[in-house]
């Protein structure tokens, strides 16, 4: 399967099952597409007629295409479906936990998927004892994995900061004893982000996510406190001080865009103007009936924004002022292996969320939905039927993905998004698929336009 598309003068051909990417001129662009379904002789005749090239030229191009086909870099067959059938089931070891250290929040964002941090339940704070047991549970069930991930999440984790610090100390002690490497991460709304938190994070946190929606009026539409006051003026100075001290360690300025700001590129530009260079801007995760939900009618605008974002990234790269956009990060030469591309995030199998009282859920987006409780850190995963369902959820588990060129980039997508859109983790969130495909097209275009590779002539 191939996917051909054009971006700002680039003709791009993606070969789905080999992972190969080709930049081609307009003659080859047509011939590669035609050759998928037509015999060589017919392709040659069509190319001569449409492009006015000589027969010899067209034959030479077909020979080049045949060489790529022989090398397995064009029209490569699918050799991986059998890997998807039992990969996860054979390897169910846990390597990541999302610790819900606080089911409470000091902001009252109406679009919050976690219902203002309470996850449709009561306010709660994780005790040190529960967190400690969660770390033990992770290490006990990690098997061959050396690298383990623990994310402090909420709600607002800084509302339980002392426990976070104690758990990091405990994790550091345990990783030495068990020959593990624990990467701690934190997501915060910034209200309580002070010098002490900054110093600790710069020492211990592998990555820190800072929530800001961009422009002041956009951020303060939803990200308000319980008195209804916007958070922008309080959090931006905290974030700027944090990033100034962060050095070369990872952070992400992470925004949410909704139906109200489909012109989200302006929010990205605002983040850049504030001095932030590691950026992420995500479509809102909410009930489709919510007024803030993205609609089908929004998609053309959103696609245009993603294209303009790609152009801005190339422009700033050429000016020596590059920035990172989470979704456009692709490592073409040393990227994920086929197993990772098939299996995705590992929710419900190698990645689990832990509530403040120690219950286990497939991921943070399922917390609070009793039907998805999998067990606890004390008794382990009891709902093995549910675990097996998540283990089978991958790039090959949905018939709708069969002919999708992007499935080995999205790994079948997000189980929670599928569940919320269709009622089934093996369903399809079509709008999410449309957005994902556009982002991958733009991400690859950015890579090619900043690669320094000479583009083919246009014949």
């Amino acid at each position: 399967m191939i996917h051909c598309y054009q971006f700002d003068g680039l003709n791009i051909v993606l070969d789905c099952y080999s992972g190969s990417i080709h930049m081609v001129d307009k003659v080859a662009y047509d011939m590669i597409r035609w050759y998928e379904n037509l015999p060589a002789e017919e392709v040659i005749s069509k190319a001569v007629e449409k492009h006015g090239i000589s027969r010899e030229d067209a034959e030479e191009c077909i020979a080049d295409i045949d060489d790529l086909k022989t090398a397995g870099k064009l029209y490569a067959p699918d050799k991986y479906e059998h890997l998807a059938k039992d990969f996860r089931k054979k390897n169910i070891k846990i390597k990541a936990l999302c610790l819900h250290v606080a089911h409470t929040c000091n902001l009252n964002c109406s679009y919050c998927f976690a219902s203002q941090g309470k996850y449709h339940g009561e306010r709660a704070i994780m005790s040190y004892e529960v967190g400690k047991r969660a770390i033990d549970f992770l290490i006990e069930n990690s098997g061959f994995h050396k690298n383990l991930d623990i994310d402090f999440f909420g709600g607002e984790p800084l509302m339980n900061w002392d426990v976070c610090k104690q758990l990091v100390a405990y994790g550091r002690e345990q990783e030495k004893l068990h020959n593990k490497n624990i990467r701690f991460t934190l997501t915060t709304n910034g209200i309580l982000l002070d010098d002490e938190v900054t110093e600790f994070c710069n020492k211990e946190m592998h990555n820190v996510v800072l929530s800001l929606d961009g422009r002041k009026e956009v951020n303060d539409r939803f990200r308000v406190d319980y008195a209804g006051h916007g958070s922008y003026d309080r959090i931006v100075p905290n974030f700027q001080k944090f990033v100034a001290k962060r050095g070369d360690k990872s952070y992400y300025m992470r925004g949410t865009f909704t139906h109200y700001n489909t012109d989200f590129l302006n929010d990205i530009k605002q983040m850049l103007d504030l001095g932030f260079n590691e950026l992420s801007m995500e479509p809102v995760v909410t009930d489709p009936s919510s007024p803030s939900a993205i609609t089908k009618e929004d998609l053309p605008v959103i696609f245009g924004q993603y294209e303009d974002l790609a152009r801005l990234m190339v422009e700033r790269y050429n000016e020596g002022r590059p920035f990172t956009f989470y979704h456009y990060m692709l490592d073409l030469t040393c990227g994920p292996c086929i197993y990772k591309r098939i299996a995705g995030c590992g929710s419900g199998t190698e990645y689990l969320a832990v509530t403040p009282w120690g219950d286990l859920y497939p991921c943070h987006q399922f917390v609070g939905d009793e039907a998805y409780r999998m067990g606890s850190i004390y008794e382990g995963v009891l709902n093995t039927e549910l675990r097996d369902k998540f283990a089978s959820c991958n790039a090959y588990s949905r018939p709708e993905c069969k002919d999708c060129w992007a499935k080995l980039y999205c790994s079948g997508g997000c189980a929670a998004n599928s569940y919320h859109a269709s009622g089934d983790i093996n369903g399809v969130y079509e709008m999410g698929c449309d957005i994902f495909r556009k982002r991958i097209e733009c991400a690859i275009a950015v890579k090619l336009l900043t690669s320094g590779l000479e583009q083919p002539g246009n014949g």
Binding site: Y17, S18, G19, S20, I21, H22, M23, V24, D25, V27, A28, D57, C61, D64, I65, L68, K73, Y80, F87, N91, K95, A96, C98, F144, H145, K146, N147, D149, D151, R183, T187, V209, D331, L332, T333, C334, G335, P336, C337, I338, Y339, K340, R341, G344, C345, G346, E350, Y351, H364, L408, C414, K447, L448, S451, L453, E454, Q455, P456, G457, G459
Partner: peptide, 29 residues
């Protein structure tokens, strides 16, 4: 005339990579 430029990409299981949702670890050691 060069009509096709093939970009270098990885030729398509240790599990040591970071969980991704909220680089390959082996090849980037």
């Amino acid at each position: 005339m060069t009509r096709i430029v093939t970009v270098e990409t990885r030729d398509l299981g240790c599990g040591e990579c970071q969980t991704s949702c909220k680089a390959c670890e082996q090849l980037n050691k």
